[in-house]
Simulated assay, not measured.
Amino acid sequence: MGVQHEAQVNLPTIRRFEGAGFRAWPAANVHYDGTWAVRLTAGYPAKRLNSINPLDPGDARNIDLRIDRARPHFEAIGRTVTFRLSPLAAPSIGLFLDKEGWAHLSESIVMRLPLSDSVVDDAMHQIPLKDLGRFVSAAFSVHGYDEALRSGFKDLVGSIKPEAGHFILEQDGQPVATAICVHDGAIAGLFEVATAKGMRGKGFGRRALLSALKWARLRGATVAWLQVEADNAAALGLYRSVGFREIYRYHYRQPGESR
Results as ranks from 00 to 15, higher is better:
130 K>C: 12
128 P>L: 05
127 I>E: 12
131 D>S: 04
139 A>D: 15
125 H>L: 11
140 F>S: 11
152 G>E: 05
151 S>M: 03
138 A>T: 02
126 Q>M: 12
124 M>W: 02
150 R>S: 09
134 R>A: 02
147 E>I: 00
117 D>Q: 09
132 L>C: 06
116 S>D: 11
155 D>F: 11
158 G>T: 10
142 V>I: 11
123 A>G: 07
144 G>V: 09
115 L>M: 07
160 I>R: 11
123 A>Q: 08
162 P>L: 05
157 V>P: 10
131 D>P: 01
122 D>H: 02
120 V>K: 02
139 A>Q: 14
116 S>Q: 10
143 H>M: 13
156 L>F: 12
146 D>C: 03
133 G>A: 10
142 V>M: 06
144 G>R: 11
143 H>K: 13
122 D>M: 00
160 I>W: 13
142 V>T: 07
144 G>I: 11
114 P>I: 04
118 S>G: 01
119 V>L: 03
149 L>G: 09
155 D>Q: 15
145 Y>G: 02
152 G>M: 05
122 D>L: 00
123 A>P: 03
126 Q>D: 01
154 K>A: 08
124 M>G: 01
137 S>K: 15
154 K>R: 13
123 A>C: 04
123 A>M: 07
140 F>G: 07
151 S>T: 11
130 K>T: 14
119 V>D: 01
159 S>L: 03
156 L>W: 10
150 R>Y: 12
115 L>F: 06
117 D>C: 00
147 E>T: 07
117 D>S: 10
150 R>E: 14
157 V>I: 15
160 I>V: 15
113 L>A: 06
121 D>F: 00
121 D>A: 10
129 L>F: 04
148 A>I: 08
160 I>Q: 14
147 E>W: 04
161 K>M: 08
155 D>E: 15
129 L>S: 08
113 L>M: 08
138 A>K: 00
155 D>V: 13
145 Y>R: 09
113 L>I: 09
144 G>A: 05
